[in-house]
Design a protein around this nucleic acid. Structure first.
Length: 267
DNA sequence: AAAGGATTCAACCGCCTTAGT
DNA sequence: CACTAAGGCGGTTGAATCCTT
């Protein structure tokens, strides 16, 4: 369906003919009680049924939003704490405006809360931070990494990846295997399958990545990944490379140029 | 105390994705 | 394959509130 809201509106007009126009605007305490009681009895989801059966003259979207952003239990209200703000800043740097993903990492906060807080408190701050000279750039001993938000992409062709020692690694269409080739050692790499395959799995993958990034301490980035479509090596950017000798493993993200190319006619 | 500008945030809008038929 | 319904998301709006003059 192209225009959801149009359909809602048509329905609204239809109902209106029966003298029961859907209501808009601020929710009353009575409406909150009706919605809360209905969901406590029948559970979340099936929002069209909530709309029809709860006695509320609200559209399904309005019911859902009111529940998720306001009535749901364990919603944290009030000012954001310092660690929450710090987390938002870090996650936003990583994920961009993916508010639901960011909110998912901050217990008790909704995506709307995070989005509003960002827009009112953090947007200008983040802008300012970006402008400041990059004094903190790494020394010669460190690898600079640009963090780019992961995006869902489906590969239509096998891709070839390079580590900085010119090992060639290949990923197949479903993105499940990366295999090194020229080091003479059985040195396969497992790559998270969802990272470049489907949006649904992607978010799980991102969550997994976030878990690593935030819950499991510092990661040492000790190599760089390049990429290519045709076998020639092109420089890319590694988000996170963590390897050990026994079970080599890495997660990665590449820059937007690469993803744009993946979407382009070249494939 | 009053006016009006600035800020906040709940709610709406439009679009996208997925599932069902 | 085309179409529809529903869920979900991020962007935007505007009423309420706060702050300044």
């Amino acid at each position: 369906m192209k225009n959801n809201t149009c359909m809602e509106y048509k329905k609204m007009k239809h109902v209106s003919n029966m003298g029961l126009a859907l209501k808009k605007g601020a929710w009353t305490a009575g409406e909150d009680t009706l919605l809360r009681n209905y969901i406590e009895k029948y559970g979340e989801g099936k929002w069209h049924l909530v709309s029809m059966n709860s006695g509320l003259r609200r559209c399904r979207k309005s019911c859902r939003l009111r529940w998720l952003n306001y009535l749901r239990p364990n919603i944290k209200r009030g000012d954001f704490e310092e660690d929450e703000v710090d987390l938002i800043l870090r996650l936003h740097k990583l994920l961009g405006n993916r508010w639901s993903l960011i909110a998912g990492r901050i217990p008790g906060r909704t995506s709307n809360d995070v989005k509003n807080y960002w827009n009112t408190h953090l947007r200008s701050y983040a802008k300012q931070q970006k402008k400041e000279p990059e004094d903190a750039k790494s020394s010669k001993d460190c690898t600079m990494v640009t963090i780019i938000k992961p995006q869902p992409h489906t590969l239509s062709k096998p891709l070839y990846w390079f580590k900085d020692d010119n090992q060639i690694v290949e990923t197949h269409n479903n993105g499940t295997l990366i295999r090194s080739s020229n080091d003479g050692v059985d040195n396969n790499y497992n790559m998270s399958p969802g990272l470049i395959s489907s949006p649904t799995v992607l978010d799980n993958t991102i969550n997994g990545f976030l878990k690593e990034l935030f819950d499991e301490g510092e990661k040492i980035i000790d190599s760089e990944i390049g990429w290519s479509f045709d076998g020639s090596q092109t420089k890319g950017e590694a988000l996170n490379v963590a390897e050990d000798n026994e079970n080599s493993f890495f997660d990665f993200s590449t820059d937007e140029v690469m993803w744009n190319l993946l979407d382009s006619e070249q494939l």
